[in-house]
Amino acid sequence: MSQLELRKIRKTYPGAAEETLKGIDIDIASGEFLILVGPSGCGKSTLMNTIAGLEAISEGEIVLDGKDVSGVEPKDRDIAMVFQSYALYPTMSVRENIAFGLKIRGMPKDQIEQEVERVADLLQISHLLDKKPSRLSGGQQQRVAMGRALARRPRIYLFDEPLSNLDAKLRVEMRTEIKKLHQRLQTTIVYVTHDQIEAMTLADRIAVLKDGELQQLGTPKQVYDSPQNMFVAGFMGSPAMSFVHVNVEQGEQGLQAEVQGGDGRSLKLPLPEYLADRVGKRVVLGIRPEHITQPQDQKSDQALVTTGEFTIEVTEPTGPDVIALIRLNDTNVHCRIDPEHPVTWGETAELMFDMKKVVFFDPETEKRITG
């Protein structure tokens, strides 16, 4: 297990109009599973390649176990990388693919065989050792690629979108296998994905990137419940958080904001007291589907909870629940509905708004307003 420190990492490609990486600062603890997430072009794969040594950084330091390895050749960093494309040698058997890196390092033959057997058993691919990659499924090939990395016993593992080529069912299965593997080995892993569900389920901490800048670094719960800005709030979560522009008002019962449905019905939503200095001003209300549901008796008398009637515009059954769409202040807003008590589009439904976990943003800076 090893500690990795990324200190003010900058990367500029020759002739580029702007930097690809803009001063990334992240400390990764020994044994931590860190996920780099963000949309295409945000710099996450570039950052991964600089850690591996496949690309040079323009400024900053990459510190591994207290030593600056920024100028060290990839082969001397003792870092293993699992690629999106698997990158297996087609003419070699699974056994030979896993053993290849160990042979290059000059490990004795008997030790190589022991290591191959250990890794194959760990990944449950012992029965595949004499097969060629062309005879394997996508999930099996991914296991072999992981096995080749595990056999080296490096200080850090890097995974670059390793599951993106798999179908949905296999992706879920492999996600579970990777999580179990990390829990068993307690290795340090840096993992790149654009899939925020993958990030939420696998990570100890998530680093959200946009345009080469670190937007937020925190646990999945921190990033989901307390997003630092509207980009993070909208990127994490499925369906995404809805953003509704409202005016903060002082009502008889406290702070409130009026929202109007697509059918003209309106509702006064209770607001938290930390918005007192925003009375008379506009804020952006960020609300997730699980904060708008059918009425629940156990919540009916709680503070910051209210109900109102709205027309259902669209319903999307997902199995465990139904996602319903309503309009609030000319904005599409998702709600999470109990499938045992379904609603249909076009009908009026009574909905409960739980405002305790709703977050608010400054419309100018798009940063979260904190209490």
Rank of each mutant, 00 (worst) to 15 (best):
M1K: 14
L4D: 00
K8Y: 12
A17V: 07
G23A: 08
G31L: 05
G31Q: 04
E32T: 09
G43I: 03
K44I: 12
K44A: 13
S45Y: 03
I51Y: 06
L54A: 12
S58A: 06
E61A: 13
S70R: 11
G71D: 12
S85P: 05
M92Y: 13
R95K: 14
E96K: 14
G106E: 06
M107H: 02
E115W: 03
A120W: 01
A120V: 04
L122K: 08
L122D: 10
L123A: 04
L128R: 01
D130M: 10
K131E: 15
K132W: 05
G139P: 10
R143C: 01
R143V: 01
A145D: 00
M146P: 07
R148E: 00
A151L: 01
R152N: 06
L158S: 00
P162M: 07
V172T: 15
E177I: 09
K179V: 10
H182Q: 13
H182R: 09
Q183G: 15
Q186I: 01
T187F: 04
V190R: 02
Y191F: 15
H194P: 06
Q196D: 06
Q196W: 06
A199Q: 08
L202C: 05
L202Q: 03
D204T: 11
A207H: 11
L214A: 05
Q216E: 02
L217F: 14
P220V: 04
K221H: 09
V223M: 09
Y224A: 10
S226D: 11
V232N: 06
G234D: 03
G234R: 13
G234I: 06
S238F: 11
S242T: 13
H245M: 09
Q253L: 12
G254D: 02
Q256M: 15
A257C: 08
E258V: 15
E258M: 14
G262H: 13
S266Y: 07
L267F: 10
L269R: 04
L271M: 12
Y274F: 15
V284Q: 07
Q294I: 11
Q298V: 09
Q302A: 07
T306V: 15
T306Y: 05
T306N: 06
I312R: 00
G319S: 07
D321P: 01
I323W: 14
I323A: 10
A324L: 13
L328W: 01
N329A: 10
D330L: 11
N332K: 14
V333N: 05
V333G: 13
D362Q: 10
T365R: 07
T370M: 09
